Lab assay of single mutants.
Amino acid sequence: MDETGKELVLALYDYQEKSPREVTMKKGDILTLLNSTNKDWWKVEVKITVNGKTYERQGFVPAAYVKKL
């Protein structure tokens, strides 16, 4: 869990989004888990830094590609 009590997951593999509802992740990324009720796709939040500014983006990743921490 992070400092706000949200559950975290670890990306076990790289994943490139294939639709606007998904998010890209790299092996080793730590993501915030938002919803894991679907056994195949989990909703996560990723933080992306571009030119020194951090953005948060929500989307789905394959559940088999992440592990709860």
Rank of each mutant, 00 (worst) to 15 (best):
M1W: 09
M1T: 15
M1Y: 09
M1F: 12
M1R: 06
D2N: 10
D2H: 11
D2G: 13
D2A: 10
E3Y: 04
E3H: 09
E3T: 13
E3W: 05
E3I: 08
T4S: 15
T4P: 13
T4G: 14
T4N: 15
T4L: 13
G5V: 14
G5T: 14
G5I: 14
K6P: 13
K6I: 12
E7S: 13
E7A: 09
E7R: 12
E7H: 13
E7T: 14
L8H: 09
L8C: 10
L8V: 08
L8N: 05
L8D: 04
L8T: 08
L8G: 03
L8S: 07
V9F: 04
L10A: 05
L10G: 02
L10M: 15
L10I: 15
A11S: 05
A11I: 02
A11N: 01
A11V: 09
L12I: 09
L12M: 08
L12E: 03
L12G: 01
L12A: 03
Y13N: 09
Y13C: 12
Y13K: 14
Y13P: 00
Y13A: 10
Y13Q: 13
Y13M: 12
Y13R: 14
D14S: 08
D14R: 03
D14V: 02
D14Q: 03
D14N: 08
D14C: 05
Y15W: 11
Y15N: 01
Q16F: 14
Q16H: 13
Q16C: 10
E17T: 07
E17L: 06
E17W: 05
E17D: 04
E17R: 14
E17C: 11
K18A: 10
K18V: 08
K18R: 15
K18E: 07
S19D: 11
S19L: 08
S19R: 08
S19A: 08
S19M: 07
S19C: 08
P20S: 11
P20W: 07
P20R: 09
P20C: 09
P20V: 09
P20L: 08
P20I: 10
P20A: 12
P20N: 10
R21I: 13
R21P: 04
R21M: 13
R21C: 12
R21G: 15
R21T: 12
R21D: 13
R21E: 13
E22T: 07
E22Y: 04
V23R: 01
V23N: 02
V23P: 01
V23K: 01
V23Y: 03
V23E: 00
V23D: 00
V23S: 01
T24K: 04
T24A: 06
T24R: 06
M25E: 00
M25C: 05
M25F: 09
M25I: 15
K26S: 08
K26V: 09
K26E: 05
K26P: 00
K26T: 08
K26H: 09
K27Q: 09
K27N: 04
K27A: 13
K27L: 04
G28W: 05
G28Y: 04
G28H: 05
G28I: 00
G28R: 02
D29W: 09
D29E: 09
D29F: 03
D29Y: 04
D29C: 05
I30A: 02
I30R: 05
I30D: 00
I30P: 01
I30Y: 05
I30G: 01
L31F: 07
L31H: 02
L31E: 00
L31A: 07
L31V: 06
L31R: 00
T32Q: 11
T32H: 09
L33G: 00
L33Y: 01
L33D: 00
L33T: 01
L33K: 01
L33M: 03
L33N: 01
L33V: 06
L34Q: 03
L34R: 04
N35F: 05
N35H: 06
N35L: 08
N35S: 13
N35V: 07
N35T: 06
S36K: 07
S36G: 11
T37Q: 13
T37A: 11
T37K: 13
T37M: 10
T37G: 10
T37C: 11
N38S: 11
N38M: 08
N38W: 06
N38K: 06
N38E: 11
N38R: 09
N38P: 04
K39D: 13
K39P: 14
K39V: 10
K39I: 11
D40R: 13
D40H: 15
D40T: 14
D40V: 14
D40L: 13
W41N: 02
W41Q: 02
W41H: 03
W41P: 00
W41V: 03
W41C: 05
W42G: 00
W42M: 03
W42Y: 07
W42R: 01
W42N: 01
K43S: 07
K43P: 01
K43H: 09
K43D: 03
V44F: 00
V44E: 00
V44M: 01
V44R: 00
V44K: 00
E45W: 06
E45Y: 07
E45H: 06
E45S: 15
E45C: 11
E45F: 05
E45M: 12
E45N: 06
V46H: 12
V46Y: 07
V46S: 12
V46T: 15
V46M: 09
V46F: 07
V46G: 08
K47W: 12
K47R: 14
I48L: 12
I48Q: 08
I48P: 03
T49Y: 12
V50P: 03
V50R: 09
V50D: 09
N51E: 12
N51S: 09
N51R: 08
N51K: 09
N51C: 12
G52L: 07
G52M: 08
G52N: 09
G52Q: 07
G52V: 03
K53Y: 15
K53T: 13
K53F: 14
T54A: 12
T54N: 10
T54G: 07
T54M: 12
T54W: 11
T54C: 10
Y55V: 14
Y55F: 14
Y55K: 09
Y55M: 12
Y55G: 09
Y55A: 09
Y55D: 06
Y55E: 10
E56L: 15
E56T: 15
E56S: 15
E56C: 13
E56M: 15
E56G: 14
R57G: 03
R57N: 05
R57S: 05
R57I: 06
R57C: 05
R57Q: 07
R57P: 01
Q58M: 08
Q58H: 09
Q58E: 09
Q58L: 05
Q58P: 05
Q58S: 12
Q58D: 07
G59A: 03
G59S: 01
G59E: 01
G59H: 01
F60Q: 03
F60D: 04
V61Y: 00
V61G: 00
V61S: 00
V61E: 00
V61L: 02
P62A: 02
P62F: 02
P62D: 01
A63L: 01
A64N: 14
A64L: 11
A64K: 15
Y65S: 08
Y65E: 02
V66G: 01
V66C: 12
K67M: 12
K67D: 06
K67S: 09
K67F: 08
K67W: 08
K67T: 15
K68Y: 07
K68A: 07
K68P: 09
K68C: 08
K68H: 08
K68E: 05
K68G: 04
L69G: 02
L69T: 05
L69F: 09
L69Y: 08
L69W: 07
L69R: 03
L69H: 04
